[in-house]
Design a protein around this nucleic acid. Sequence first.
DNA 1: ACCTGAACACCGTTCAAGT
DNA 2: ACCTGAACACCGTTCAAGT
Lengths: 232, 232
Amino acid sequence: MAAKRSGTQSKRPQRKAASLQPVQEPRGEAPLSLERIVATAVDLLDAEGVDGLKMRRLADRLGAGAMSLYWHVGNKDEVFDLALDAVLEYRGPSHRVEAQDWRGDVVHMLEDWRAVMLRHPWSASLLPRRALGPNMLNRLELLSRTLSGAGVSDADLNVAIWSLWNYVMGATITRASFDLSDEDRAAGQQRLAGLSEHYPTIERSRLLLDNDWDGAFRKGLDFLLDGLGPRR
Amino acid sequence: MAAKRSGTQSKRPQRKAASLQPVQEPRGEAPLSLERIVATAVDLLDAEGVDGLKMRRLADRLGAGAMSLYWHVGNKDEVFDLALDAVLEYRGPSHRVEAQDWRGDVVHMLEDWRAVMLRHPWSASLLPRRALGPNMLNRLELLSRTLSGAGVSDADLNVAIWSLWNYVMGATITRASFDLSDEDRAAGQQRLAGLSEHYPTIERSRLLLDNDWDGAFRKGLDFLLDGLGPRR
DNA sequence: ACCTGAACACCGTTCAAGT
DNA sequence: ACCTGAACACCGTTCAAGT
């Protein structure tokens, strides 16, 4: 399972060490920079979703000509990569000195990861099709280290990591998609009504009306962790 | 968790019962029909991926004018919905009379579901963001019925179903994405090399080079089923 | 009932050019 | 070094019109 699609490399020089900032431009435009572009892209994505990110619109928000972006960035995919990884930053589980609570640490990491993606609902479905950025790799490294330290053997480690990845990604992509379509909720309900006869078990358990996403996520995760934990 | 985005309804009348087909047009064009459109869309998606499906291209393949499709179909999203559900058809676990092997049945259903999506790699990432079609609802109904029949209580059923959904979707979306980018494999490898120092645990376990997708899928699934199964 | 071409309002990106 | 407008090659979809 190799990393992929590294995104066309921009021919721009590495961003130089931050020179002292001019306090912040009054209200006019700060000079274009990769940082501003990425930050604005995240805002735009949060506000308008994946389809809302257009190069011209992004440039507009930055008060720049439509084509100015292409000096800082190779193409639109690179904007996606940068915005995605920007959002995934993580500073460890605040290492309290107390107990070696591997399970608590893992749950904290995964719930934080999920929460971040739900805060930026475009990010989850983007993550699997783009190359893993440094922030995501860092999260995977911390997760691996924690499980390994807890006693999961090297032979079992990959299965454990990928199972957790699969579960978290599936849960978050699904939930983010439903979030985005609250408008259609009504239409969905109605459609469901006509279906009860064909899908009696779904209807009885009210599967499609279940709202306890957080609880369901946590319970399923517990099942996985029961199985994945270090051999007792 | 309600169904959603039902796809703009076409104003076309329901397709009439199949009149006797003229054996198949020699090589010229059969008349345009919803069936042909959907079948051709699936072919096109298989060959070119989600971004490869363009209304003009689809019409081309059908030997029709670019705009003829819009009489049969409301818009492009409806084509996606129809192609997606067409691919998800399922005829139960061939009910052999033998043992009440609920676990075997569940594994069969989920592996078939995953296999179908991997055969049409565009389908997995599409599924969570579109309304559930009849074929997918049928799969969920069968899954629910099997778990319920095996003794999973109504209170636990939704958590069980959604956990399995999450796991299967996450696994399949991830794997299909990697499949699509074999070309970049080389670039990925190289990128990884430079990273080994920052992510030593990932490097040691060769997490990103692991190729045993099928085995990993099955093992993680077993962990989930251990936890989800009927209370013993 | 079914199909069509012209036309509109967009897209991402190239390029030659400005400062 | 950094930014720009004009232009190209596309898109999905509307519409008025054909048979």
